[in-house]
Design a protein around this nucleic acid. Sequence first.
DNA 1: TTATTATTAGGAGTGATTCGCATTACTGAC
DNA 2: GTCAGTAATGCGAATCACTCCTAATAATAA
Lengths: 154, 154
Amino acid sequence: MKAAPRAESSRLLASLRDQGRRVTDQRRVILEMVRSTDTHPTAERVYHEVKKRVPRVSLGTVYRNLKLLTEQGLLAELADGHYTRYDGKVGSHHHFRCSTCGRIFDLDEPLDRRLEERVASRTGFEVRDHRIEFFGRCAACARSRRPSRRQRGR
Amino acid sequence: MKAAPRAESSRLLASLRDQGRRVTDQRRVILEMVRSTDTHPTAERVYHEVKKRVPRVSLGTVYRNLKLLTEQGLLAELADGHYTRYDGKVGSHHHFRCSTCGRIFDLDEPLDRRLEERVASRTGFEVRDHRIEFFGRCAACARSRRPSRRQRGR
DNA sequence: TTATTATTAGGAGTGATTCGCATTACTGAC
DNA sequence: GTCAGTAATGCGAATCACTCCTAATAATAA
């Protein structure tokens, strides 16, 4: 887990306080945890990580706060079949999903807004955003011919 | 529901038979139902539609067959938060998701394979496919300012 | 410090999906 | 056509991610 962008997280949490919400340890640590990694963790995984710093935290609290933080735009959700994954990187970006090990990688491929305009003019829809999901095998899995680490794990 | 592409479905089911699976009414009707619509139905919705033609069908059978047909590549799955949706259009194509009414529309925007090559060369991953998801409001919802039909429905 | 009230822990509840198993019904061999 | 073998079904029970309820706790404002 990379160094947590604490200052940035504090600023974000301050915006919560302005809306009458409170800043608890649980809430702060959950936000920092998700923002400090690019592994798109599930709620269960966030729970286990947060528990290391806040041992009394409950799973329900993790779910509740992930939901709240997502609603507030501080986190993003990623539907992944059985689980919901959370993404600390809130701005538009693309993903690569390894079909062997199941990991999801961030890509820094630039967004092409012209795509949105084209779809908008062809369909008459209001297009606000788009996201590309690439599929295949990540470098590690391609090399080993076996799932490299955790298999389709959380 | 559009006219079902029966002949085509039969051909697909024949490929199942070659693998030692059997072609039952339930299986055939489920495949035809999903392939005959572009509404990306949930299992529950498939169940209700199929029941009209095969009244004794059970929900478990619908789930079992949707899964099987997906594994055989005759259908595709679409993770949609709470539900799994099914797509009878198996080839690569893009989607537009209306954030007001929740409907998912097929787009005929062409695939740009150069994107895949670019990601592959930048990351060292084996890129096999990609899919773009556009977000916004569909024409009907944009017009009415209210969810136009079923709200985030199945 | 105190009052107010959002938040929490923990457990019960929910809802989509899967599983187990007795029964049914394709299919191929005779 | 009959029969054996076995895939598939129906139905209820089980699973599992997630949400909800409630009494207890703790952040905040005065």
